[in-house]
């Protein structure tokens, strides 16, 4: 009798006894049905390939550990393993939303590490330095309010108490400070962006 004509049950038995080529025949015999079944559920070649591989890893582990007890029903058993792995795949897939880089949207725009690279850090330092120089040119009362608000993070109430002016005056000085800064920036065509 030709080796390839042996039934699944005999091949499984031979494999358990240590004949490795019995597994090759079993895979060769059933690969198309199992793979097609997986593909018909997931519609993705790579995922089908992964599930097919995981299915047979489970098959190999179970057979080698001697835990297989469904003689004569090899294919339905393998199909059931594949089916369970497909369900696991979809469960995992629902828990982990995927983002595909399709050109219009890049996942790296979301998961960047947030820190600046050397070039951007230099530009940021330069911009901050320029802003500091511009602030120095403001009238003292406006400069004082702006420094307290932006650099010391004080509220307008705290600023008014510290400088002895009303909150409205402090707000007005802040407003004029920003207007004056904008005027200087526009007048001298200063670029303050990266």
């Amino acid at each position: 009798m030709k080796y390839t004509n042996l039934s699944d049950a005999v091949l499984v038995s031979n494999y358990i006894k240590g004949q490795e080529n019995a597994l090759a025949i079993l895979i060769e015999r059933h690969k198309q049905r199992i793979y097609s079944f997986i593909y018909s559920k997931v519609f993705d070649r790579d995922i089908s390939e992964d599930i097919f591989q995981d299915t047979f890893i489970k098959v190999i582990n179970t057979l080698k550990k001697g835990r297989y007890n469904e003689e004569g029903k090899f294919l339905p058993w393998v199909m059931r393993i594949a089916h369970n792995l497909i369900i696991d795949h979809f469960r995992k897939d629902n828990r982990m939303p995927k983002f595909e880089d399709n050109g219009e949207f890049s996942i790296f725009s979301i998961i960047s590490d947030g820190s600046l690279n050397a070039e951007k850090r230099l530009i940021k330092d330069q911009v901050e330095d320029d802003v500091r120089k511009l602030i120095k040119e403001l009238p003292d009362d406006q400069k004082e309010v702006l420094m307290m608000r932006m650099y010391k993070d004080m509220s307008f109430k705290e600023i008014s108490e510290k400088t002895g002016v009303s909150i409205n005056t402090a707000l007005g000085r802040m407003r004029y400070a920003l207007i004056n800064l904008r005027k200087v920036i526009e007048k001298h065509n200063i670029v303050l962006t990266a």
């Binding site: 895979i27 060769e28 793979y35 591989q53």
Partner: peptide
């Protein structure tokens, strides 16, 4: 064409 790649089968064997 609905069959696994040869590399997958080789890996399993």
């Amino acid at each position: 064409e609905l069959v696994p790649k040869k590399t997958t089968i080789d890996f399993l064997l």
